[in-house]
Design a protein around this nucleic acid. Structure first.
Lengths: 250, 250
DNA sequence: GAGTGGTCTAGACCACGAC
DNA sequence: TCGTGGTCTAGACCACTCT
């Protein structure tokens, strides 16, 4: 499975290129090279670390596989800008929407601050030594061509997302992940989505213009930044009849 | 995502290692090395093709990424045995079942021969020059601890699966893919599953001991052999409330 | 033309597995 | 001990991108 190597979490202290990959990853996480920027060239890196070109290339290959780096022939090796677009829609097929059509619009229904639940403290790795850790909780509705399609609950840890707590929700962008990057310096690198089946309660149904009890698909997402920290919890609900997902099995 | 390179379908005539990978893949498809067997060693291959070791290694890496080969340090490089186990269950979480418990049992409810639909002819690439191409269609129920859980419709093309057409369904194994290999020489290498939401009709509901109209998840699978041919179409239905699937997003 | 990553070579030595 | 794949070296030349 090309499933993932999270280098920092694995026993890659074995080989030289594994150690190099960890070292380079650390330099990226520390912000020495920012998302979208090129890192040093292979030859420079090889020289500065005192190893052969092929060894550096193996290290870079690991980071490319992890999605941290992207290589462009003739240009350089770049730090990935992270997830963008509207990846949540990959789970649904709504009539009147395809890849080429206008992107969905989004509307923040509510926003508030509250104390973290135990589960959130655990997921976010918040330290509760001093004061009880806080989170921002949002309700968000995403529409395609004026029709409400997805209802989301989003939880963001403080103080990391402090800049957003003070912003009027009218000013929030339609796309959250690029906004996280710009406002908070948080680059979402990957996510884990857990899908299950449920039914809409009365409030949820009203938001989506469906009947109470209508079948829905529930997507529970954990999103992670460059350093591998979980920095967003999100639950998304959409009409089960619009659900369509394709998976490659091997 | 490490999404897939199907070498034979891509423009890999460019590099030497791409061509080598195609050549090796062809030798495997032709049966020179069978699933589970080791291929020649790297050094032998490099020698016989007159290239450097590193070049052969790049070619092998492509085939490993495609799931055709598996490398074992100190032992050799082996032709993959293909998919096995019970991959369909990865979409469901049934109470009383986990990875370590007993595998599900299966029961063939019916089996018949019929002419291919236009869609099946297209999927299987059957040639209808001479006689109308035939398929085997099965209904199959999979149970966990005496409780029926999954209802499947399976379509297999003739003449490829001819040996199965003449077997009593009592003799069919619980695991189909290993049986395809043994009886028909067909090695299932990968599959594409398309998931959607539906509701059980009366007949289906009765089989699964659920109410008519009960929500279900529908899995439509196309399974492919070593040569990349589609050789099985399968639709699986299971209780939507037991549906649970986790996907990595990048 | 200069700089980047991509391909390829011809070696060396290491780590694992089987005998 | 031997054969396997895994790591690493120190080069060469090619292909792409920008100026």
């Amino acid at each position: 499975m090309s499933t993932l190597n999270y280098l920092s979490h694995r026993t890659l202290g074995q080989s030289q290129y594994g150690k190099l990959a960890m070292a380079l990853r650390e330099r990226i996480v520390q912000g020495e090279w920012k998302p979208g920027e090129p890192i040093s060239s292979e030859s420079l890196l090889a020289q500065s670390y005192g190893v052969a070109l092929g060894t550096i290339r193996q290290a870079l290959a690991l980071l490319v596989e992890d999605g941290v780096l992207q290589r462009r022939h003739g240009k350089g090796t770049f730090v990935s800008k992270g997830m963008s677009g509207t990846p949540m829609l990959r789970f649904f097929r709504f009539s009147g929407f395809d890849e080429s059509s206008e992107p969905p619009s989004s509307h923040i229904l509510s926003s508030r601050l509250r104390s973290s639940s135990a589960q959130e403290i655990s997921a976010f790795g918040q330290n509760s030594h001093n004061s009880p850790p806080q989170v921002i909780q949002l309700e968000r509705l995403r529409s395609i061509g004026q029709v409400p399609r997805l209802l989301e609950t989003i939880v963001l840890p403080l103080p990391l997302f402090g800049p957003l707590a003070e912003m009027s929700t009218d000013l929030w962008d339609d796309q959250l992940y690029p906004m996280y990057q710009v406002r908070c310096g948080v680059s979402i690198q990957h996510a884990q989505d857990s899908l299950s089946f449920s039914q809409l309660n009365g409030t949820q149904a009203k938001r989506l213009h469906l009947a109470s009890g209508h079948p829905c698909v529930l997507v529970e997402r954990q999103a992670f930044d460059l350093a591998g920290r979980c920095v967003e919890l999100r639950t998304t609900r959409g009409d089960a009849h619009s659900f369509r997902y394709t998976a490659q099995v091997r």
